[in-house]
């Protein structure tokens, strides 16, 4: 299991899974604490219309237009939710529900109407991703990690999600103090001059970036699960924000690795010969971790 085949077939998807989980869990901590967990849900739904529009404009499935399209759709959604909330005086949950279902429906409709049969673009792909197919065929063992020729052919999703994970981690690190203060006591933060609403928007934008980078490889189910489950479980472990973030990253990484292994190799143990959806399994494992935390974690009650 740890030989050449592992490096070729499993190393890259696992690494992508872990990085995507971490990139989503980091902003997820703040979303959960700010009771905005469902913004993550909304963002991951509107990614679909974003990539569909990008595809219609450019006519190809290429990375950057799709990323820009998805990010644009996420911003449009956030703007629409805010506009509906203010102009219509509708409560935020319902404003969110109206926005993301309408945008998702529009995305599906446009997708059905346009001719995408020649390219790999469908609703299921956007939901489940294609983690299993991100294999690194030019590798021939662990030594390939030091071989520039083989490294050049590593699936481009890996460096992309890596860059985004590092970007989000450094943003959280730089803005740690204002983030922490404004998350726990918005009024106090505003009184000492922290730009509270700008910071709140920043969290949402960071979440959108993570969602957009992750969905391509792992689909939107994992994105929602990773936004919420690891931070929620971590929240039950400790009262300190720093330690909570650390726990959440641990839970995210465990979910990704264990989920991938169970999806790829688990069915073999039960005598089935096909693997199951890795994205689905990673989400399932993160849910089991949360269930354990709800039952046994030290700080599970207020």
């Amino acid at each position: 299991m740890m030989g050449v085949e592992f490096v070729q077939l499993s190393l890259v998807p696992m690494a992508i899974g872990v990085l995507a989980a971490i990139a989503c869990a980091l902003p997820g901590n703040f979303l959960v604490l700010r009771k905005q967990a469902l913004i993550g849900d909304a963002i991951s739904h509107v990614v679909l219309p974003g990539i569909v529009v990008a595809f219609l404009v450019t006519g190809t499935i290429s990375t950057w237009p799709m990323m820009i399209g998805a990010a644009g759709a996420a911003l449009v959604a956030v703007g629409l939710i805010e506009a509906i909330r203010r102009l219509g005086r509708i409560e935020p949950g319902a404003a969110m529900g109206v926005t993301f279902t309408a945008m998702f429906a529009a995305g599906v409709l446009v997708l059905e109407q346009s001719d995408t049969s020649a390219v790999h673009l469908d609703v299921e792909h956007a939901l489940f991703g294609n983690l299993e197919s991100l294999i690194w065929l030019s590798a021939d063992g662990w030594s390939s990690l030091a071989d520039p020729g083989a490294l050049a052919e590593i699936p481009s999703e890996l460096p992309r999600i890596g860059i985004v994970a590092v970007l989000i981690a450094s943003l959280v690190w730089v803005f740690w103090r204002p983030l922490a203060i404004s998350t726990f006591d918005e009024g106090y933060a505003a009184s000492i001059g922290v730009p509270v609403s700008l910071l709140g928007l920043g969290v949402v934008v960071a979440a959108a970036i993570a969602a957009v980078a992750a969905f391509d490889a792992v689909g939107s189910i994992i994105v929602i699960a990773m936004f919420i489950c690891p931070p929620a479980a971590a929240r039950l472990m400790t009262n300190r924000l720093g330690i909570q973030v650390a726990w959440s990253l641990g839970f995210a990484a465990i979910s990704a690795i264990l989920g991938y292994v169970l999806a790829g190799y688990g069915p073999l143990w039960f005598g089935l010969d096909n693997s199951v959806s890795a994205a689905g399994m990673i989400a399932t494992v993160s849910g089991l971790l949360l269930a354990f935390a709800c039952l046994f974690a030290p700080h599970r009650r207020a």
Partner: peptide, 23 residues
């Protein structure tokens, strides 16, 4: 039973059940 708010519970149930369904 826990101190998690309802929106976190909704998001967690939604994504985990859906993920398991996909499996």
């Amino acid at each position: 039973k826990t101190r998690l708010s309802e929106d976190a519970a909704i998001g967690a149930v939604l994504s985990v059940f859906f993920g398991f369904g996909i499996v």
